[in-house]
Design a protein around this nucleic acid. Structure first.
Lengths: 217, 217
DNA sequence: AAGTTAGACTAACAGTGTTAGCCGACGAGC
DNA sequence: GCTCGTCGGCTAACACTGTTAGTCTAACTT
């Protein structure tokens, strides 16, 4: 029941403003409902106070709108990861703690924005869209291999060639855990602790330790 | 464009037959399109040669129909895994090869029925449905922990307590790999080999080896 | 023979994505 | 000052969707 007052059209160069409003509303609805078909163009139109077809001035289809929302989400996740890594580094964290920080940021994102996170990986690739900078998922892959490469370079340089594999393993395993956590009805759901423990257990198994045993603390 | 001949109603006790036909058509459409909203009740009705509302005699809603299809898919996957394990055991495979066989069966299923596999993990849990035997995903979890438990019991009995964790790790990591493989546009897509290599690499890292070094072949 | 009911159907409602076409207002060019 | 284009939006309409209500037919039960 938004204000039904006759919306005054944006000024000449300000069309972009409405685009952002549409994007915002769509993001909110997607996060609340979590299903692409629960997002209706008429719904977002109602929320921003415009007529449904007006959306087409800014997005060429509903799929385009959804894709745009998800691309922004991909970027936000990548930023969150990189910020967490830099913050940890600035705080003088050791390599393992830095990986831990990034993993935590990833989990936070997936848990705080669960519907969008799920949507990111449940969309078919649409070949009609010009892959502006490759599929956004490539960015994600890059972020993880960067993480493991930095870790290996500093801790076990001799095994640095495994960085790629290790990055994939870390990411996919983490993602699998989160999906499981999201989908499981009762047992684990809502209990973030066991998710953290799983992460710990995973990192112990996956991350190589220094070759020469360093004096424990 | 199925036969538009007036469909003769099934005999008295044969209502189940139509139910199966509907289920089959829905399964096929879901596998072809991969999106829940691409499945239309009118579509499946057309395909089986009935009127759309007649579906409601057998399924209380579209969601119910989809859920039923997916539950069958869950069961089929669990069966495929267990059969692969038993076949390997019957062929005298060692514990590691048995795990390998199960992993392979899982991958085969996910690759051969990609849309349905994806849908299995992209559906929100619906609390209205009576969880007949818990969420089907629990079955999946069980299958994996059983696998790792059998492996540990035979190979590293002292670490058998890790079976649960290990099962989760194995499954979630595998699932993550498959999602990645499905979603990635070009690079890896269609190239099953790198998927197998990733599995190998994962199993090497995850599966504990015997405590007392056995004479290598 | 009568009644009940399984197994279907038609009609209709509200809501969807999308297209076609219109309209008012602002800016540039003359 | 006046026209003209075009930006930012609107209304009407199409074809489709899930779903409900009510109805018909034929078989089974009594």
């Amino acid at each position: 029941m938004k204000s039904q007052v006759k919306r005054v059209p944006n000024a000449r160069g300000e069309g972009e403003r409405l685009r952002q409003e549409i994007l915002g509303a769509a993001t909110r609805i997607l996060e609340e409902t979590g299903r692409e078909d629960a997002l209706s163009l008429r719904g977002v139109a109602r929320e921003v106070g415009i007529a449904a077809p007006s959306v087409y001035r800014h997005f060429k289809s509903k799929a385009d709108l959804v894709t745009t929302v998800l691309e922004a989400t991909y970027r936000a996740l990548a930023v969150a990861m990189s910020e967490a890594g830099e913050a940890a580094a600035a705080a003088g964290a050791d390599p393992r703690e830095r990986v831990r920080a990034i993993v935590t940021a990833y989990r936070r994102f997936a848990i705080d924005k669960p519907r969008r996170y799920r949507l990111m990986f449940s969309l078919e690739y649409e070949p009609d869209r010009p892959p502006a900078t490759g599929h956004p998922i490539d960015t994600m892959l890059q972020a993880w291999t960067d993480t493991t490469d930095a870790y290996l370079a500093e801790v076990v340089p001799s095994r640095r060639s495994e960085a790629q594999d290790l990055g994939v393993h870390l990411w996919t395993a983490l993602h699998g855990q989160l999906v499981l956590w999201h989908t499981l009805p009762s047992a684990a759901a809502g209990n973030e602790t066991i998710l953290i423990e799983l992460e710990e257990s995973l990192l112990r198994r996956l991350l190589p330790v220094p070759e020469a045993p360093s004096p424990a603390q």
